[in-house]
Design a protein around this nucleic acid. Structure first.
Lengths: 320, 320
DNA sequence: TTGAAAGCGGTACCAA
DNA sequence: TTGGTACCGCTTTCAA
């Protein structure tokens, strides 16, 4: 910038004014400056600007895994909103590890991101308190975090309730639930919806029909259930990866899965799902964050997004 | 930091030494400083550090779309390598738009990223030259860029050649090619491989069996071909999205697709694919970038990764 | 309309 | 082993 000022024969401050479109610069002067900028290939150093102004125009996004279609869809939505607000996105995958989540968040904070969108891996977020005090905004997405803060989740219990109810209406009385580890908020919420649907229909709760754990064990769990005496006639799968794991077993009981996925309509039969919107989650979280960043006051909000049942065939198979 | 120094009763510089693990600090002094840091909840301001040191420990990643499984896989690999090198990743989606690509790259450069990994949307990268001169390293991934720079691509022509050859060996003589827009490097390379395979087998090149364009038109193109007199008995699809579009038509000619995808093995018949490795692409590009950042000299390298044919059924269907 | 000078929060270099 | 000071490149404040 100094060089530009010298080349244009003006003071540093004048160049700064031109670069920032500040008013009160003689058009002729401005033109000289612009010419000098072009000629020298000058580009403003954002680090210096950030240092001085305090705002980085960058937000941090911590998700579980970018390579998971659910989170990458969410990621894209966040990116788009950020772009509209002139911000960039630093992102990182926690891999469902609270320690890694914390490291990522603190690293982002050290870079002075303006705000954070976090898909919490852990439940304790006290480490965030000093950062929030320091003025960094935070929004939890997909799951609530361990402290009062803006949160966007989807209607997990309601969605599972609707999906299981759908199977019940098609005549099933023994319905299995394959879910992610019970320690994960979304998994336990969905289990709750499943239980409520059974109870409302007056069906017994049979613990042997419930398997909670990582997706790579879901297939084996399903096979075991189907091989047992009095097997389930239908399955509700608690997330996209588990649905795929169940399909991969080759068994084709009646099935409704939480999360939509590409090719769900191409399989035979088509896979009936309870769809949530990764886009909606990302967009809503980002918009909420930017609203806070632009100074919106008020207590922490909690937004719940609806789910949608999409019948495609697998959920309409009657019991044998 | 000033406050910490005051609290610990030492000079600014000493705090700096402690924070950076520089040698030559009395353990007792260091301890006092550490205590002051903890008590004040001090955290180093990275912006200031960057301003002074010139290195941001951040790299920029420009891909086509994070929500595309191919690129999100690549993204994850880049993120992992970056993390191992203590760097963060700023990422953005170009949406196959050269203007947006340029904007993203320049924005990243203004933030003084140390290096860039770019999946080029355009073919003209002269806008990068000043940045390269300014010392920013760049690696092109998935496609070559418009200037001499390190590049990692996969063996597109060879992969397509293998896939089409596979169909030919199973007796097909009329094989359609559904590819992305011919202006995209990978698409034209794969078309080249297709042509070479036909030529080597002494098969005629029939232009009516070739359709190039965005994935959302591929389905209609396939339907039109199959409805025409003397239809193809087999199809080679030029990328993952086009493979899915072809499957979605409901027609099931013999098919080999470029790119592996989740559920390819669950469909009936399983989908035979030419797999490339998004991970490998991301990892290799990132490692190359960090090698340059650590000062490795030498001319631009070009690495080509192999592809792998995975027979699953759809590619082994004989002609009727 | 333009400019000079003081800092933002660190690091680098040199002196004590 | 420790401290002082210049300075990174920009914005802000105030004066001309």
């Amino acid at each position: 910038m100094k060089d530009v000022a010298a080349a244009a024969g003006v003071a540093l401050k004048t160049v700064s004014r031109v670069v920032n479109d500040e008013p009160g610069v003689n058009p002729a002067t401005a033109e000289r400056v612009v010419a000098a900028i072009a000629q020298l290939g000058y580009r403003r150093n954002e680090s210096a600007r950030v240092l001085r102004r305090g705002r980085t125009a960058t937000i941090g996004l911590v998700i579980e895994d970018v390579a998971d279609p659910f989170y990458s869809g969410m990621s894209r939505a966040v990116e788009d909103v950020a772009l509209r607000h002139g911000s960039l996105v630093l992102s990182g995958s926690s891999g469902e590890d609270p320690v890694r989540e914390r490291e990522l968040v603190l690293t982002f904070c050290a870079r002075r991101v303006d705000g954070l969108i976090i898909v919490p891996a852990g439940t304790d977020h006290d480490y965030l308190l000093p950062e929030l005090d320091a003025g960094i905004a935070a929004v939890f997405a997909d799951r609530p975090g361990g402290l009062e803060a803006d949160t966007v989740i989807c209607d997990n219990a309601g969605g599972a309730h609707a999906g299981v109810g759908h199977l019940i209406r098609h005549g099933h009385r023994r319905i299995a639930f394959l879910g992610d580890s019970a320690s994960i908020f979304t998994a336990s919420e969905r289990l709750r919806g499943y239980r409520r649907a059974l109870a409302e229909a007056g069906l017994p709760a049979d613990g042997s029909l419930i398997a909670m754990g990582p997706a790579d064990r879901a297939g084996a769990a399903l096979c075991a259930m189907l091989a047992a005496p009095d097997p389930p006639t239908a399955v509700f799968t608690g997330n996209g990866r588990i649905t795929v794991a169940a399909l991969r077993t080759g068994h084709r009981p009646a099935l409704v899965g939480f999360d939509d996925f590409e090719l769900a309509d191409v399989l035979r039969p088509g896979v009936t799902v309870v769809a949530q919107s990764p886009d909606g989650l990302g967009r809503t979280a980002a918009e909420m964050l930017f609203r806070r960043l632009s100074g919106e006051p008020g207590p922490a909000e909690r937004i719940q997004l609806p789910t949608r049942l999409i019948p495609r065939g697998s959920g309409e198979i009657p019991p044998p």
